[in-house]
Structure formats: structure tokens, C-alpha cells
Computed example of a mutant assay.
Amino acid sequence: MTVFKKVFDFFCGDWRIFWGIAITIILVKLLGNWKAPNLVSIVIFLLGITLSLGFSLRRETI
């Protein structure tokens, strides 16, 4: 398990960023299945990535 955690930390680094990006990609994929306009998907993608990185950065600076 220790090896898995080290490999995960090497590639992903932070659980908040990982889950934020994973949830964002799932939402964008679901919107694609519902035939949502591309602009909505792009905005949700950018907003989700930005919020994930912002929360992680905020945690590191506090």
C-alpha cells in the first residue's frame, strides 16, 4: 500500500485536486450525453479546474 500511495502522490500530488478534476470531467461527460451546448461544457470544465486548484492553493497558503 505504501508503494501505491507514493506512486499516486507522484502523479497526482493532492487528493483535492484529483477529486475536483475527476468530478469536473464526470460532469462535463454527463453534459455531453445530455446534448448540452459546448460552451456550457467548456465553462463548467474551466470553472471546476480553477476551483480545484484554488482550494488546494488556499489550503497550502493558510
Results as ranks from 00 to 15, higher is better:
residue 1 M to A: 03
residue 1 M to Y: 03
residue 1 M to C: 00
residue 1 M to E: 03
residue 2 T to M: 13
residue 2 T to R: 02
residue 4 F to H: 14
residue 4 F to T: 15
residue 4 F to W: 14
residue 4 F to E: 14
residue 4 F to A: 15
residue 6 K to G: 14
residue 7 V to P: 04
residue 7 V to R: 05
residue 8 F to H: 03
residue 8 F to Q: 01
residue 8 F to A: 12
residue 9 D to W: 01
residue 9 D to G: 14
residue 10 F to R: 12
residue 10 F to T: 15
residue 10 F to S: 15
residue 10 F to A: 15
residue 11 F to S: 14
residue 11 F to R: 05
residue 12 C to N: 12
residue 12 C to T: 05
residue 12 C to M: 10
residue 13 G to C: 00
residue 13 G to E: 00
residue 13 G to V: 06
residue 14 D to H: 13
residue 14 D to R: 10
residue 14 D to Y: 07
residue 14 D to E: 09
residue 15 W to Q: 07
residue 15 W to S: 06
residue 15 W to N: 03
residue 15 W to R: 09
residue 16 R to E: 00
residue 16 R to M: 02
residue 16 R to I: 04
residue 17 I to Y: 07
residue 17 I to R: 00
residue 17 I to T: 04
residue 18 F to S: 03
residue 19 W to Q: 01
residue 19 W to L: 11
residue 20 G to L: 05
residue 21 I to R: 00
residue 21 I to T: 04
residue 22 A to M: 15
residue 22 A to H: 09
residue 22 A to Q: 07
residue 24 T to A: 01
residue 24 T to I: 00
residue 25 I to H: 09
residue 25 I to A: 11
residue 25 I to S: 12
residue 25 I to V: 10
residue 26 I to E: 07
residue 27 L to I: 14
residue 27 L to R: 01
residue 28 V to R: 01
residue 28 V to G: 02
residue 28 V to Y: 00
residue 31 L to F: 07
residue 31 L to Y: 00
residue 31 L to I: 01
residue 32 G to D: 13
residue 32 G to H: 15
residue 33 N to A: 14
residue 33 N to V: 12
residue 33 N to E: 15
residue 33 N to R: 10
residue 33 N to Q: 15
residue 34 W to H: 07
residue 34 W to I: 10
residue 35 K to Q: 14
residue 35 K to N: 13
residue 36 A to E: 09
residue 37 P to V: 00
residue 37 P to N: 06
residue 38 N to T: 05
residue 38 N to M: 14
residue 38 N to S: 13
residue 38 N to A: 11
residue 39 L to C: 09
residue 39 L to G: 08
residue 40 V to T: 05
residue 40 V to Y: 06
residue 42 I to S: 05
residue 42 I to R: 10
residue 43 V to G: 02
residue 44 I to H: 02
residue 44 I to N: 08
residue 44 I to M: 13
residue 45 F to S: 08
residue 46 L to N: 03
residue 46 L to W: 05
residue 46 L to I: 06
residue 48 G to Q: 09
residue 48 G to K: 02
residue 48 G to S: 08
residue 49 I to E: 00
residue 49 I to C: 00
residue 50 T to M: 07
residue 50 T to S: 08
residue 51 L to Y: 15
residue 51 L to H: 06
residue 52 S to R: 01
residue 53 L to G: 00
residue 54 G to K: 12
residue 54 G to Q: 07
residue 54 G to L: 14
residue 55 F to K: 02
residue 55 F to E: 06
residue 56 S to W: 05
residue 56 S to G: 10
residue 57 L to M: 14
residue 57 L to H: 12
residue 57 L to T: 02
residue 58 R to V: 06
residue 58 R to C: 09
residue 59 R to M: 09
residue 60 E to P: 09
residue 61 T to A: 08
residue 62 I to A: 11
